[in-house]
């Protein structure tokens, strides 16, 4: 019997936020339709490196495993993507796994993306309803508007658009494409539009929309294919119009 086919995995390990990173290599048994999550589970079941050293299971975030929860974003062969949909057979080996680099590392491949949720607060990414009591139906909406808005509302806050953005780094607290696109979504909704101004003001603050430099990496990296660059352009137009009005009549 021939040797079973192996999957070689190199994982960047980091015991905690203040520890130095190091690399570990694993050799796993190949099976059809394997993805990166399956590889990480194999390691958890038998945490032994390629050269036979005992180690610990790799810490990583995951939940839905069908690319709607946004948990398992990481760098796979240097590219930001979701681990659950990264099929082993489509990746050159050894497969390199690293944590996203634009967020603080918690441990191994797990990072802290609370910045994104804080940003959502900052731009008031919600429809300010009066209450949950029965106030009748919502506003009517043209199917065309829904078809434009729905793709935007599929953003899973994975952070890949921030990861690939050259303007997001330790020197610059740019909110990133995902949040700008959310502002567009809420400004598009008939009720949300009543409060468009507040959101635009937030976007015109430090780290806001002006920090976008149009590298357009975000739209390429988005696993949900959200038209992020359209959103940014659209929000840019809304923002400067409001800024001009504020300046003229303010």
């Amino acid at each position: 019997m021939g040797e079973t086919k192996k999957v070689i995995l190199r994982v960047k390990r980091q015991a905690g936020p203040k520890h130095a990173p190091r690399w570990e290599e694993f050799a796993l048994n190949w099976r059809p339709a394997m993805n990166v999550i399956i590889c990480l589970r194999d390691i958890a079941e038998n945490p032994v490196t390629r050269d036979g050293k005992k180690t610990t299971p790799v810490t990583y975030e995951s939940n839905c495993l069908e690319e709607v929860c946004g948990s398992c974003a990481m760098l796979i062969n240097g590219k930001a993507r979701m681990a659950c949909s990264a099929l082993v057979d489509s990746l050159p080996q050894p497969i390199r796994l690293e944590p996203l680099s634009k967020f603080p590392v918690v441990r191994d491949l797990a990072v802290d993306r609370s910045f994104m949720f804080e940003s959502l607060k900052r731009v008031k990414a919600w429809i300010p309803i009066d209450g949950t009591y029965d106030l009748g139906e919502g506003p009517r909406m043209a199917p065309e508007t829904q078809e434009q808005a729905y793709p935007l509302s599929r953003c899973i806050s994975c952070g890949n658009c921030l990861e690939v953005c050259p303007q997001v780094n330790e020197n610059n607290a740019f909110v990133g494409a995902a949040i700008i696109s959310q502002v567009r979504l809420f400004n598009m909704h008939p009720t949300g539009a009543m409060h468009a101004r507040e959101r635009l003001e937030a976007l015109m603050g430090p780290g806001g929309i002006a920090d976008c430099a149009n590298a357009q990496n975000c739209v390429k990296a988005c696993p949900k294919e959200i038209p992020l660059t359209e959103s940014i352009a659209e929000m840019n137009r809304q923002a400067w119009k409001q800024a001009l009005l504020g300046w003229l009549f303010g």
Binding site: V164, P166, N169, N172, N214, N217
Partner: peptide
């Protein structure tokens, strides 16, 4: 000043827009 605030990553993501950015 803007340049200093950005950090090119065109070697990781060699896409056209990213090249133009750099």
């Amino acid at each position: 000043y803007i340049w200093l605030k950005g950090k090119s990553n065109v070697s990781d993501y060699p896409w056209v827009g990213n090249w133009l950015y750099t």
